[in-house]
Design a protein around this nucleic acid. Sequence first.
DNA 1: GTACTCACG
DNA 2: ACGTACGTGAGTACA
Length: 844
Amino acid sequence: MKKMLDTLLEHHQPDNVLVAFDAGKTTFRTEMFADYKGTRAKTPPELLEQLPYIREMLDHMGLKWHEQDNYEADDIIGTLAKKAQSQDFEVIVVTGDKDLTQLADTHIQVDVTVKGVNEIKSYTPDYFEEELGITPLQLIDMKALMGDNSDNYPGVTKIGEKTALKLVQKYGSVKELYNHVDEMKKSKMKENLINEKEIAFLCYDLATIKVDTPLDFDLADTALQPQNSEQLVSFYQKMNFKSFLDKEVLDSQFDQNTQEEISYTVLNNEEDAQKLSDIVEGPVIFQLELFGENYHEADFVGFCLGINGKYFVSSNIELLTTSAIKQILESSRINKWVFDVKRTIVGLRRLGVTLRAVDFDMLLVSYLLNPDHNQNDLGELAQSYNYFDAKSDVQVYGKGAKKSLPDEDGLFEHLSRKARTIESIKSDLMKQLTEHNQDQLFDEIELPLAFVLAEMEIIGIKVQASTLQEMSVILSQQLQEIETKIYEQAGEEFNINSPKQLGQILFEKLNLPPVKKTKTGYSTSVDVLETLKKKSPIVSDILDYRQIAKIQSTYVNGLLKTIHSDQRIHTRYLQTLTATGRLSSVDPNLQNIPIRLEEGRKIRHAFVPSNEESVIFSSDYSQVELRVLAHMSEDENMQEAFKSDYDIHSHTAMKIFNLSSPEEVDGNMRRQAKAVNFGIVYGISDYGLAKNLDISRKQAQTFIDQYFAQYPKVKQFMDDTIDQAKADGYVETLMHRRRYLPDIHSRNFHLRSFAERTAMNSPIQGTAADIIKIAMINMQKALQDKQLRTKMLLQVHDELIFEVPKDELAIIEELVPQVMTSAIQLDVPLVVDSSYGQSWYQAK
DNA sequence: GTACTCACG
DNA sequence: ACGTACGTGAGTACA
């Protein structure tokens, strides 16, 4: 309700507003017809309870509301609409009730919400003419004949919407119809019409919305009043409206910090742009505005250049390619300050402009200062630093279906304010960066990495659609077969994809024992189904179905949708999202392409080199996280294992099972030791390890004790890290990437434990991320320096994927591992494994 | 929009 | 007694 009001006000920017309510159950209509709305369900009591609060909120918002005894809201609206129309207002009626569309007229538009409030259908006289061939007022004549079920008046027997429309089109009105009713051919309908003439006229009156309700207020009383932010804030507090509260507090802050004016110069044409040609010194603030998240394809909206405290804006994006501006952006001497450098590089490249010399990225810096601040919105981010110059994009453009561009002035002001925000916040953020000891992390890792990632995204990777399409055919067939089998065994058809329906079949109809519950019902996840496998053959079929359905929907069909016209997939790496410093990949995610199971792994056949002279080449770090742990903890035993190049899991097995030689380690011991190693990296707990290995907690605890006894400095490191988190409020990677852990002090066991595990895991996962990021930067530079044609295409956390011309293979097989292993100097060696082939599948 | 499930490191 | 292994993204169902 509140949300809808906000969007309406935002969208229409009205001068006058009235919200009308129904007063009560009895109106002049019930006097005319006792059963009027007789079948209508009682207003739900919870809505009734809310009404006084809604009215209070309207008061605070400065909106007039009204209800009137004996009349419906419709009549108030109808009367006011006509009154406003006669005084040359543009009227918009917003309602969920189609009946009101009869009010549509010149200068009166009726917007009916459909499907909740997300979609609106606008009714105008033209629309009526086009769609129905009648006027809005003739809707009343139709209703007179067909009646209205929801308002419970009958109309003429046997006449429904279709017939009513035909009759109204033919005769024009009910009155005219009855003037000519005798001339009609003999029919049952004619009889009904004649017999029920009185009913028809009664219904006509019932359907007619009053436009002469005696209102005790004037049009001027509906003028929008300034809203009372203070009262609204306390109202939201009282009502526990958290989401609106935040917005209101922010808005009122905007009010209080009466925004400083901003002026800008509009660049209208090339001549205007050319006037910027004497710029030889930076910094230049540059804001490139796109409409949509995916900058590989989003529309260009405009740009702003901030130069010497002046702001130059334009929505003519071509002006970026005029020599004056292009020179500024491509100059390696003039420094540029931006928000989201990677987005800016890719966007400009689409215009043939190569961005160089960026030395400040507000998004990147604030992410490093605190990775929880991963807002991709300049305004919101600035507001969190108490800079109230720029609004958020949602405040300016709106959200969801309502998202749209403001007028040109609004847009230019927004862009200029964004540029000014980047400019004014810079010294503050850079100062904090230095205080955090993160200058190197920004200058030498994240900022150069953004350029490397941009190139990878722009190049993309070739994906053979035909390979996926062939898979799709086979998978569909398999799905069909399994589906039939499952329905047979279940004795009925149901939606296998619905956990709810599946749960009912398995645990209620087939009476299998429910192993685990979720918040909403039975769990049907893999581990549950695995334990039920032996109880009923249907379970295996469901597991098979799940596996294939996943491949089909997410990978085959999902990937097909993302192939561009150049036959390539251009993912976007999110560089400022994860809490640990890893990248993530979206649209599509190329970091979770199946590999563990053969069926899914086949997807990788579709990822191929650009041409037959090249191969896909892949190198991955072996056990980076454990090596990082060995380094950071300085544990001699663990370091020894890596220095001697032992199999780390077997080595751990020997330690925790007290064996004296590697030969004594059997497969099961190694498997368990591997799980313990993983657990350590995740921030071990007996509970988690027990669950993973399906052993008792006690036994898990024994493993852990044994592990820490054998790797004592690992234990020490874990304890120290938690202590540090408690003392400083954050933990750090080797390169000083930070993660804050406020929950470390929580009295809530669950939250505190989580924070403790995070404290142990983040420095390890994050340092591994630092390392591969350095490797990527060095790798790109090496390729460039050596003028190789090899392209770096993808990163999957501990793995880099390249496209390599065969004549460069020999060099690359040496170069990549060399660069990756030397990215950083640890107390233990880094090890890299490589492979290549004619597709990503073969590069294993 | 949230819950569930499952793909990856 | 408490009760979760760490970090992600996407498809589907359902309110």
